[in-house]
Amino acid sequence: MSEPTAVPAGAHDERSWPLWEVFVRGKRGLAHTHVGSLHAPDAEMALRNGRDVYTRRQEGVSIWVVRADDITASSPDEKDSFFDPAADKIYRHPSFYDVPEDVEYL
């Protein structure tokens, strides 16, 4: 516990604990999927809170938690320049060639 929490006694301010994003991998899932977020004083407690909040109904077999601050996200303002240029480049989809009849698996 090298980092004492900065929460004053009796504090009820949710913002006093950092925000964590929670990712859960389901039983048959291959990847961890984002399920939501929560507040926790540190990573270990975030993991436990994630267990209690997001896996009460057997939703998962593995949990990741990531400090929301540590996620670099694209900005909504950049949406046009980021994503629109891909809209008219249909040749990037693998649909412009004929599959020879004898090829079974492609």
């Binding site: 929460v7 504090a11 009820h12 949710e14 604990w17 507040h39 436990r48 809170n49 209690d52 009460r56």
Partner: peptide
């Protein structure tokens, strides 16, 4: 509880 997460726990 101090936090809603702890309510759940």
């Amino acid at each position: 509880a101090p936090q809603i997460e702890e309510d759940m726990a």
